[in-house]
Amino acid sequence: MMSILGFLLALVVGVFVAPILGGLITGLDRRITARIQSRLGPPILQPFYDVAKLLGKEKLLNNSWQAFCAYVYLVAAATSVVLFFMQSDLLLIFFVQAVGAVFLVIGAMSVPSPYSQIGAQRELIQVLTYEPLLVLVLAGIYVHTGTFKISGIYALEEPMLLKLPLLFLVLGYALTIKLRKSPFDISASAHAHQEIVRGVYTEFSGPYLAILEIAHFYEVILILGLVSLFWSTSFVGMLVLVALTYLAEILVDNVSSRMTWRWMVTSAWAVGLTLTLINLLSLTM
C-alpha cells in the first residue's frame, strides 16, 4: 500500500510536473525537427506560448458538448499519468487513457463537420490499431514479471528490454501512432498540412484547443514513461532509452511520408502481431 506522502508526491508530479515536462519535450521535439529540416526552429518554450495564447483567445464553439469532451480528455490524460506515477496497474492506466481517446472522438463527432468527423473515424481506426498492440505489450510484461503493476517492473533485477526486445519494437510502433508522428499522423497531424485539415482538432479552437494540447503533453509523458519501464534498473539507462526512442521517433517522422489508414491497420497488425507472437512464445516456451 502506498504511503500518504508517496501518494501526494505522485499526485503533484503527475498533475503539475508532467505537463510542464511534456511541453518541454514537445518544444525540444519541434526544435530538433527543425534542425533536421535544416531550420532554426522555434524556442524550446514555444508549446507554452502556444497554449497560453490559445487560452487567451475567444471561446468559439459549435456546441457545449465539445467543451465537455475536451475537458474529459484532459482529466483522463492527467489521471492516467497520476496512476502511472503511483505505480499502479499498467492495463488500468492504459484503459483510463482510452477514456480520453474515446472522448476526443466523441467531441470531434459531435460537430457535423465532415473534416472533424473523418478525423474522428480515423482516430478510431488508430485506436483500433494501437490498442491491441499495447495490450499485448502489457501482456508480455505480465508474462515476464508476473504482474501488471509498475512496481513489479521496478522490482526486476535486469532491464526488461533484454527479454522483450521485439515487444519494445511493437511498443514503438504503437507509440508512433499515439504521438501522431509520420507515417501515422493520419487522424490529425501536429502541424503538417493534411487532406482532412486537422482532423479531430479541426473544430476545436482557442481555449479548448489549448486543453487538448495540454492533454497531449500528459500523453507524451505517459508514453515516454512506458518506454522508460523497459530499462527500469538504472536512472541513466532510463533517460538514455527514452532519449534514443524519442530521437528515433523524430527521425522516422522525418524520413517517411504519411500513410493511409488501410495500410496502417494491415501493416501494424501484421508486423506487430508477428513480433508479439515471437516474443511471447519465446517467453512462455
Partner: peptide, 19 residues
C-alpha cells in the same frame, strides 16, 4: 479494440448538436 471502435462511433454521432 474492435469493440471500442463500433461503440465509440455510435456514441459520438448521437451527440452532435448546435450550441
Amino acid at each position: 479494440a474492435i469493440t471500442l471502435l463500433y461503440w465509440a462511433r455510435w456514441a459520438g454521432l448521437l451527440m452532435s448538436h448546435p450550441l
